[in-house]
Design a protein around this nucleic acid. Sequence first.
RNA 1: GCGCUCGUAGCUCAGCUGGAUAGAGCAGUGGACUUCUAAUCCACCGGUCGCAGGUUCGAAUCCUGCCGGGCGCACCA
Length: 558
Amino acid sequence: MTNLESLLSARLATAFTAIAGSPTDPVMQRSAHADFQANGALPLARQLDRSPREIAAEVLAAADLEGLATAEVSGPGFINLTVLPETLERMVNEMAADERLGVPFTDAPETVIVDYSGPNVAKEMHVGHLRSTIIGDCLVRILRWAGHEVKSISHIGDWGTPFGMLLERLIEIGEDAAAAELSVGDLDGFYKAARKRFDEDPAFAERSRQRVVALQSGDQELLRLWQILVAESERYFLTVNDRLGVTLSKEDFVGESFYNDRLQSVVEELDRLGLLRKSNGADCVFPAGFTGRDGEPFPLIVRKSDGGYGYPATDLAAIRYRIKDLKGTRLLYVTGAPQHQHLEMVFAVAKQAGWLTGSVRAQHVAFGSILGEDGKMLRSRAGKSVKLIDLLDEAVARASTLVSDGDVATAVGIGAVKYADLSSGMAKDYVFDLDRMLTFTGDTGVYLQYAHARIRSILRNDFASSQVHLTEPAERALALQLLSFPGAIDAVVDSLEPHKLAGYLRELAVAFTAFYESCRVLHADGGIRASRLALCDLTARVLAHGLHLLGIQAPERL
RNA sequence: GCGCUCGUAGCUCAGCUGGAUAGAGCAGUGGACUUCUAAUCCACCGGUCGCAGGUUCGAAUCCUGCCGGGCGCACCA
């Protein structure tokens, strides 16, 4: 099973390289004027000081397209390629016979560590966690399916100064009452109450500070109580993840506290390497190329002036652990764009320390913020944050007004939210707008689910495995789109941009709908009917699996 | 001040390893259900691709400058 586009590209590349005298990319793309076009002759014209059309003609003469496609030179020097009907049929049939739908396992498997979701203990999951969780989960699914060894990590915020007040609050109301409050998912209520007490009552605040010190010095009783906070919160996170349909499991929660006993050794190692410098009483590393407000070198503070460790130390311990112990070769950090500089600094220090070497890549998969209707960052601290679980329930409730079945409503509602996020580029901020997400017309998740359900409806009436024969233009267009599936997967694997898969699936659904409008299936005669049913079946499989890779369900019927 | 990022149709967004008339959805107008799910489809309407230069046979795409929005810039994560 071979990727059609890359096969064509490879054949042309040989010819291009022969003509150019050096490795030359044919620059293939889908075309409105043919099935594909190769633009490589145009840039070559200058290099060889010859007419582009002449070069294109020569490439064509040298290219071996036997049994693949017909080609012609067009316009200023484009090579237009039209795939032979029998070749298209053969490849579609091969794809249909392949469980992996034409997508090969990667020939260079990596160990990929994906850090995403990362909620905070005793704090509600809010819209801010939505993107990280959805995008991270999608990347995990796709990379894993492509044949990589993938380890999910949810870097839980389970340590640090806030735990003083949380523990003090827990002690104040009693552990049973606290556990009860947390177990019903009222994390924000608990957190806010603790915060309020901390702000209002100096004695409470002082006791909180002492709790932090005691906790960090290993007080057994406090550790036991802390464990209650962590366990109840994790249980709650799992229910939200379950609602969202995310693959994260309990074993994937690796809290900041996990790195506690490694922090000192990180500092020691950095010191041994001579990377550490005292600055204003703190132990810092100054990676090259980072400057602060005053234009002076900007530090990554590894140990605070009070001797404590902050998140940079944890992040350094984590990156070292992920490389040295987990043997990760590609580390992904699915966190918001505002953390870009911080992560770049962590990567820079990891490089200087010799952990992040040439064969290991660390990448920040950054995404924009979700904004409120006022166009400002929707932050939890600023009060009115939307509880993630409420948003999901609302989405499902709206879906329930359109479909009767509860499971289907869940699939549609959650799918709508996920598709809204995954279908546009992740670099930009976007305004959080329930109405837009849950509009069930147009470019939405339900459009894809609907296309899939329609096909399943046809197949319920009749289906027997058959060979595909392409006759109508709409069938041919659908076949071409189906064969682009491996390319769409590739695109996400190396760009880490899920919206490319979402876009592909959308185009597939459009191609199917065009086919559906112009070609009868069940009412067609014998051979044609069987062939079209096979085409329907393959389309349904690609849609269902593609949606699955996005983390979206594809119900049998709506 | 430095850095990152975004600016494409009234609205929400694709397209950006430079390539043939800049594409979708929503909204608007007009059509299509005795036909496999009309949550659909077809047609029309709608764009100085922020602005100005530059490189090029060719720029939404690359470079420079500017304008505008967002974010980050030492002990919170």
